[in-house]
Amino acid sequence: MSGKAKRLDKHESRIGRILRAEEFGVVVAIVGVVIVAMSLTPNFAVGTNINTILQQISYVAICAAGMSLVVICGEIDLSIGSIYGLGAVMYTWLSVKMDWPILPSIVVTLLLGVFLGWLNGYVSVRLNIPSFVVTLAGLGALRGATLLISGGVPIYAKESKTFSGLVGGSFLGISAQVYWMIALCTIVGVVLAKSKFGSDLYAIGGNKVAAQNAGINVAKVKIQSFMLSSFLATWAGIMLVGWLGSSNPLTGQGQELLIVGAIAVGGASLFGGSGTILGATLGAIVGGLITNVLVLVGVNGNWTFVANGLLILAAVVINTLVAQKRKTLRT
């Protein structure tokens, strides 16, 4: 074996593993932002503020967990923000305008979400059209549908203490959304890391032809990833209604940017083949922290968009450089 391979092998020591972990960069980013935040404002490191940040980013984190599956297998879903918004509006429309009971409204809304995910996946994969284009069309069309269904105005949700408590209450001083985020991200994370489905996603994103040659049903796995992603985004939209008590037809506008950002900041390659749910969740937290700090120090709120854009750019540049570095390590 060559010297370089030996050196790589030594990296398998504990410290090496930490340094090489995909989440290493995002942890550094969190620590950095927290240090800056604490030096800028005493209001940052307050328990309630931390809970607020986590509560606010939980929706992005849940969507990012789902879309990580899509990104890891080499696709992207830009309609995710619109699906999230449609989930919120569809649920209130069914439960309020159609006066359905809450549970069937939730179930039918989720089914619609899964169907839209299937449609995105089917058109992209089976018809061999880049998912970037297909879901960009979805982004516009589904937002339009959402505005049409809602009539362009917010719909007040049906009163339900159980439901709003379940998705918007708090327990031990921590908001329900934080528990939901931890639970859902953990489940998706375990599925990705431990199941055959997760293994197939990495294989497809890493080398589609090799995956195909190894007998993996590439089209089926990809479509399933779109469906799961869409399911989680729809559920996040329904959860939001349970908390806010109303749906807004503009909910989720621009959210795709935050979600892609969270995934990229979490160390995933936007070209597929790598990424973790832990990384994406931490990536969502970085985005939330930056927004929070900017608000606390009182700068113009529009700077948060600039900050998020720059954050994505920085993450992608760093990921690309790291990937190139790894390649040059080849013997």
Partner: peptide, 17 residues
């Protein structure tokens, strides 16, 4: 066309199976 570079040796040996 057989291997996934971003996966480890063991996963590649067992790829698809």
């Amino acid at each position: 066309l057989a291997l996934v570079g971003s996966m480890d040796v063991a996963r590649n040996v067992f790829l698809g199976h």
